[in-house]
């Protein structure tokens, strides 16, 4: 048997996988945050929101959804930008990008579904963001009524106003297609029968959970800057992220438990990962365990010092984002072909 590290997919693909997962998760979270408060107690029971409290806030309708706007707008627009930049990275990696007109030819390929999901997420995410940005455009256009920008701003406000009719639908579709995008990145990598470290049922799940964890971490960073507009959401997202990180740690344990007794190719991958401080210290300790501890602390001791909590939640957000990137980097570079000679 010959073992050979894969060199076909490099850093551009890593950036793409990271931004694809993050962007998809951002749009999904933006959608969940507004429309599915009832889901929070179910998907994150540790967040402290009970079903009845969620139903109450939902019943308040407009008054509750209004302060969420700055958050959901930032998340959905960031999601669109992340996805667009990620797609650009993928384009740079192609040998013949001029042939992309044939991209939707083979539904048995995950790239087919990825293209579809990313395309639809970008379209609905942009429409959703535009509809939500309408009040901001309106404010700016009022302020700069005499400037040269007033005409385009008025147009943006006008179209945004029209789009608001479909805002709920756009948000829902962007959220679900974003979920599909985050999910597909793992399936993409795991469809490699010759690379046993990737070819596992756990990898898509790990990438999905990690994508949502980085999405939640990004939300925490966003909330630090738009905090004054938003009450209570920070804790809910922190609670959601704690659950995701715990699940991710469990998935990684399951993954390594399986892989440690795996074939020679898998063992070569594990040996490579364990020899890289960037993986075990960067991705595992700094990217998972430290933020887990920090988020636990802020979640249960949040009454002590709001200022310290802000710093800690910013720090844990940044660490989870860096950890998510490092995880993908090392998983991609740890791919080892197992050739039969």
């Amino acid at each position: 048997m010959t073992l050979e590290f894969q060199t076909i997919w490099g850093e551009l693909i890593v950036i793409y996988l990271f931004l694809g997962g993050l962007g998809g998760a951002c749009l999904s979270l933006a959608s969940i945050a507004v429309y599915s408060k009832r889901m929070l107690p179910i998907i994150a029971p540790w967040s402290g929101v009970t079903l009845s409290a969620a139903a109450e806030t939902e019943a308040e309708g407009e008054t509750e959804s209004q302060p969420n706007r700055a958050f959901t707008l930032t998340m959905s627009l960031s999601g669109v930008v992340f996805l667009a930049v990620g797609t650009l990275m993928l384009m740079f990696d192609l040998l013949q990008p001029e042939a992309i007109i044939y991209l939707l030819s083979n539904p048995s390929s995950w790239i087919f579904w990825g293209t579809l999901f990313i395309g639809l997420t970008l379209v609905f995410g942009a429409l959703y963001g535009w509809a939500q940005a309408e009040p901001f455009f309106q404010r700016w256009s009022e302020r700069s009524s005499t400037g040269g920008l007033s005409k385009p701003l008025r147009l943006l406000t006008f179209v945004g106003g029209k789009l608001q009719r479909g805002e709920r639908l756009f948000g829902l579709l962007a959220g679900w297609f974003g979920f599909g995008t985050a999910f597909y990145t793992g399936f993409l990598v795991s469809m490699a029968p010759s690379i046993p470290f990737w070819h596992t049922p756990t990898l898509p799940l790990l990438f999905l959970v990690s994508a949502f964890s980085t999405g939640a971490a990004y939300a925490l960073v966003v909330l630090v800057f738009i905090r004054h507009r938003q009450e209570g959401l920070e804790q809910r997202i922190e609670g959601f992220d704690v659950g995701l990180i715990l699940f991710e740690v469990l998935l990684l344990l399951a993954y390594f438990n399986f892989a440690s007794m795996g074939s020679l190719g898998v063992q070569a991958s594990i040996n490579y990962l364990m020899s890289q401080p960037g993986f075990w210290f960067g991705a595992l300790v700094l990217g998972l365990l430290v933020p887990l501890a920090l988020e636990f602390w802020t979640l249960f001791r949040h009454e002590r010092s709001p200022r310290l909590n802000t710093v800690l939640s910013l720090l844990s957000g940044v660490l989870v984002l860096v950890g998510g990137y490092l995880l993908r980097h090392y998983v991609v570079y740890a791919g080892v072909f197992e050739f039969p000679w």
């Binding site: 050979e4 894969q6 076909i8 997919w9 993928l90 990696d93 192609l94 040998l95 013949q96 990008p97 042939a99 992309i100 044939y102 991209l103 390929s109 790239i111 993409l188 469809m191 490699a192 029968p193 010759s194 690379i195 791919g335 072909f337 197992e338 050739f339 039969p340």
Partner: peptide
Amino acid sequence: CIGCGYCIIACPYG
């Protein structure tokens, strides 16, 4: 062919 390299990754025989 766009040259995405997916086939190279998927081929068990290099």
